[in-house]
Amino acid sequence: MVISYNYNKFWKLLIARKISKTDLRRTTGILPNIMTRPNRDEEVTLETLGQICAVLGVSIGDLVDLTFCEPSNSKSWCSTVERY
């Protein structure tokens, strides 16, 4: 099973609240290299997401979408997809 992460809701929330990534990073104490992971739609730890949620007053589902899929044997893309 392959899990992919999409942080579009996170970026839209920051834009809507006029919060820069730098300001959020400084407020939460998250290291700069950790803040680049959502830019690349990479996995972010629950601890980090929890820190962000606490500062923004939201839940994890308000920040990230997860996609679970089973890779196809003969294709490079997923054959079945479930989003949460």
Rank of each mutant, 00 (worst) to 15 (best):
V2Q: 05
R26Q: 15
M1W: 04
M1I: 12
S59Q: 09
R83C: 01
N73V: 00
M35E: 05
N6D: 14
V81Y: 00
T48H: 01
E47T: 11
T36G: 05
C78W: 00
W77N: 11
I30D: 15
V2M: 04
T48K: 12
F10P: 08
S79G: 00
I60D: 09
D41H: 15
V44L: 11
T45L: 01
D41Q: 07
F68R: 13
P71Q: 12
K75V: 02
C78N: 02
S74H: 09
K18M: 03
V81L: 03
T28C: 03
K75C: 08
A16C: 11
S20M: 06
G61K: 05
V81K: 08
E42V: 09
S59A: 14
Y7I: 10
R40P: 07
M1N: 14
F68K: 10
L66N: 02
V58I: 04
I19H: 09
A16R: 08
K9C: 08
I34C: 04
G29A: 04
C69E: 07
A54F: 01
E43Y: 05
Y7Q: 10
L56W: 05
I30T: 07
I60P: 03
N33A: 09
T28K: 02
N39W: 08
A54D: 12
D65Y: 10
F10W: 00
E43K: 09
I15N: 12
T36N: 05
Q51G: 04
S4P: 02
V55S: 10
M1R: 12
A54W: 00
I60T: 11
K9E: 03
S74G: 11
M1A: 14
F10S: 10
K21N: 08
Y5F: 14
L31R: 14
L63H: 07
I15V: 15
D65F: 01
I19T: 12
I15T: 13
